[in-house]
């Protein structure tokens, strides 16, 4: 039993670390514009139809210093239908990495999308645009498959568990351990012993033993 305790502890602790993830996502664009150097990050990568996190870092073009007080507007629109443009203002509050400003953008469909960034700081302003390809969303399907297969995995584990238990019982039976006899009885389903006193005021209730026996 002991080696497996160790392994179980190691696995449990190992799994706890799997929630670590970066912030900002993958770099989509890194370019100088006006007095700024602008970097656009996107997550997930590749972009998929549905919600996506877009983050922007603005730096001073000359010194490389991160500019935290710039105002950033991001407009996205499908290439085919520019009329469906949506504009969001990015904020530091939405980014875990407070050097960035972020917003959640909803890509309603797969295909080519145009992204336009407008950055303003004091009297300075700069604009950048880029294209990106949004792939058909698969996150929902992945999610559904995960949750549908999860019970299947647990059932499989339970089957193994029951098999091991049965084998253990058989081995105990061979070695003559009396515990196996006790375990084959399902004590949970035996009726609870009735108390000696029986002062129920209304014995005519359905199911009450006095009316049945």
């Amino acid at each position: 039993m002991k080696p497996f305790c160790r392994l179980a502890a190691v696995l449990v602790l190992g799994v706890s670390a799997t929630a670590a993830r970066g912030d900002g996502g993958t770099m989509l664009l890194h370019q100088d514009a006006g007095p700024f150097t602008i970097t656009l990050f996107a997550a997930p990568q590749p972009l998929q139809a549905g919600a996506a996190d877009l983050s922007v870092m603005v730096q001073d073009r000359n010194s490389g210093e991160v500019l935290l007080d710039s105002v950033i507007d991001l407009s996205v629109a499908p290439e085919a239908e520019r009329a469906l443009q949506q504009t969001v203002r990015l904020s530091r509050g939405q980014a875990s990495n407070r050097l960035l400003q972020a917003a959640t953008v909803h890509f309603s469909r797969a295909g080519k999308w145009r992204l336009v960034l407008l950055v303003r700081r004091g009297n300075d302003a700069a604009s950048l645009s880029t294209e990106c390809t949004v792939e058909p969303g698969s996150s929902r399907a992945v999610l559904v498959w995960f949750y549908v297969l999860l019970p299947a995995g647990i059932i499989l584990l339970f089957v193994v568990h029951q098999g091991l238990k049965l084998r253990q019982k058989k081995q105990e039976g061979i070695s003559g351990t009396p515990r196996s006899v006790l375990r084959t009885e399902n004590s949970w389903c035996k009726p609870a012993p009735l108390s000696k006193m029986n002062c129920h005021p209304d014995r005519s209730e359905p199911g009450f033993p006095a009316t049945r026996h």
């Binding site: 002991k2 190691v10 670390a17 970066g22």
Partner: peptide
């Protein structure tokens, strides 16, 4: 690039390091 693989990387580091330090520490009841 991928948050998912990043998590796998961290899990690998932590999991294998727990195994690595196991013979050194020999935690009770090992």
């Amino acid at each position: 690039r991928s948050p998912g693989w990043h998590e796998v990387e961290h899990a690998c580091f932590l999991g294998t390091s727990l195994l690595f330090w196991f013979p050194v520490i020999q935690p009770w009841p090992s």
